[in-house]
Design a protein around this nucleic acid. Structure first.
Lengths: 338, 338
DNA sequence: TTGTAAGCGTTATCAT
DNA sequence: ATGATAACGCTTACAA
């Protein structure tokens, strides 16, 4: 069995209270005593039991991170940054991959709460549904611990949101492409999560502000069963065959943009001369294709830093902004001409 | 404050022991009592405090997952699969991203142990150093809890390894390329982790078995400061300018292979006609480039399933194999001709 | 079948 | 500056 505070106190010939004080860096312990205790601790390699500690402190110093799929290239980065930041502030991360199923969110949420985490971070806008009922679990959680949401907005007490203004970023990118002369733009997306909706809104607003007529016919949603890049590319091909002509594609994420590039290659369409392509997230995928992909950077690292900063503030009782918004920036590469 | 087992016992007019029995599905509790208690629990939404539970049970039902960088495309997949599998067996995952710094492994290990996790999973072969001293922390951990290692081998009591036979996979792939007529092959790698060494060994063995002369001059290691794909491609270009001619590149992972493709494109070398390229991990990157990348699949999902199965066995006191090896398989795409 | 009570390893509040 | 001791919320013999 592991050593306990009693073992150490006996060996150091002090009380457990003193050992505890040494452990927690209390100022009122004589230097000699501290050293004696520390020596014993080092010698025997004692590490305090954090479950027991949690009972006393009423905090596990642990944050529950929920994300749909931590192997998704975007979510993985987010989880990584969060873990690093939390670690730096003395918190551990309990990871929960819920999948995209709506029901399971709820179950995972209550599971994670039973671990008595100090807060919950929802990573990705998939956690925000469109109906009130769907989002009830967030409210339930917020009754017990602070809830942080990355990449979506949800207004409620004890819920804090950090996000990128996807709508505006998409609006600006679309406008820029349009004003460079590409007036027929296809919008390519898969799911309508919170940020998915915002991006689509941004695209629509930009097109409408230019009085574009046919852009609604150029909005292409890949069905959920198109999981692979190849399948997406093929779907786009079929869609394009029946749709009006277009000179640009704006995709809701980089993977979709890669599929768009594949579509072009399969059909002998040259990029960027005949078709310009723009992605979202500025992930490593932008460097993997040829030509390299222009993409919108949503400042993920900045967002995660802000999130953890806000969280630490909340946990220490400070008043913190309930919504923090960053703006995305367009990273121009070779799939576009502007 | 949260409800406790006492609150429930009072409301249900039974003792806390009975509530506990209901909670833990003990068979010896009258159906009527069980229902009465369950109704109260449901009504008030009680969830047991797992720290307190951990103290009684001496188990947190939590597994510590250590990985260098959970945003790495390969490690992220591994973490995802592991979390899913563990969840299915009733275990939570405490994620720790250690970075590649050697010292920090040790600190994180002791930190994670203090959380009284039931086991530790080391994800990725970066956790195995070449010196005994470097690996001491693994031995220390194994004295307290089972240690599972994914993608590396380390022989010690209470340490269990699940891995892919990278050496053999690389040997076979190299041989296949060689025998297809490409006798001058460049090997492109970055770090020599455990599996990194094995892969290089496999390449060397294959070349030596064909009495290749100059392959040692065609082994190219990118320096640690070349982080981006572009930088890797440029480095390869400089290396190639001074090296013997070659008709194939075998890379230690897909990202390096993408860099090799970039190198070819920058220099007007056509793939696969003038140069064939082979990657490792069969990640999504293989679909992002043009032509699509031939790669070795190391059966990650199978490995993670086996790992969790072994772990569950160990935790339930069964005798389990200390080393489980799978073999990789070559997935042929368009960067190769054979 | 149910209840009582003794742990589990800490922290924190008192005294001293 | 240090030591007793009561929480903390649960599990689990042992009694009844």
């Amino acid at each position: 069995m592991s050593l306990t505070i009693y073992d150490i106190s006996k060996k150091a010939e002090v009380s457990i209270a003193t050992v505890s004080r040494v452990l927690n860096g209390s100022p009122k312990v004589k230097e000699a005593t501290r050293k004696k205790v520390m020596d014993i601790i080092d010698e025997y390699g004692y590490t305090p039991n954090s479950s027991a500690r949690a009972m006393g402190l009423k905090s596990m110093k642990t944050i529950g991170i929920m994300c749909a799929d931590s192997s998704d290239i975007f979510l993985a980065k987010a989880v990584y940054y969060l873990e690093q930041n939390l670690q730096a502030h003395g918190y551990e991360s309990l990871l929960c991959c819920t999948g995209y199923n709506a029901d399971s969110k709820k179950n995972y949420a209550s599971l994670i709460l039973s671990k008595k985490v100090d807060a919950i971070i929802l990573v990705g806008s998939h956690f925000i549904g469109s109906s009130e009922e769907e989002n009830q679990y967030i409210i339930d959680c917020s009754a017990k611990v602070p809830v942080m949401i990355l990449n979506a907005s949800f207004r409620h007490d004890n819920v804090y949101c950090i996000l990128c203004d996807d709508m505006n970023a998409m609006y600006r990118a679309t406008t820029e492409m349009y004003e460079s002369g590409i007036t027929d733009i296809l919008y390519f997306y898969d799911v309508l999560s919170y940020s998915g909706r915002k991006k689509l809104d941004g695209f629509r607003m930009a097109m409408q502000s230019h009085h574009s007529k046919k852009h609604e016919e150029l909005i292409c949603q890949v069905p959920a069963d198109c999981r692979s890049i190849d399948a997406m590319a093929d779907y786009l091909g079929k869609f394009a065959a029946k749709a009006p002509k277009f000179g640009g594609i704006i995709a809701a994420d980089d993977q979709l943009a890669i599929a768009a590039i594949k579509y072009a290659q399969k059909n002998g369409i040259s990029i960027p001369d005949e078709l310009q392509v723009l992605g979202y997230n500025n992930s490593i995928l932008t460097h993997c294709c040829t030509p390299e992909l222009t993409s919108i950077d949503s400042q993920l690292e900045t967002q995660t830093r802000a999130l953890v900063k806000t969280l630490i503030g909340v946990l220490s009782g400070q008043e913190m902004p309930q919504k923090t918004v960053f703006s995305g920036s367009l990273i121009k590469r070779s799939t576009t001409n502007f």
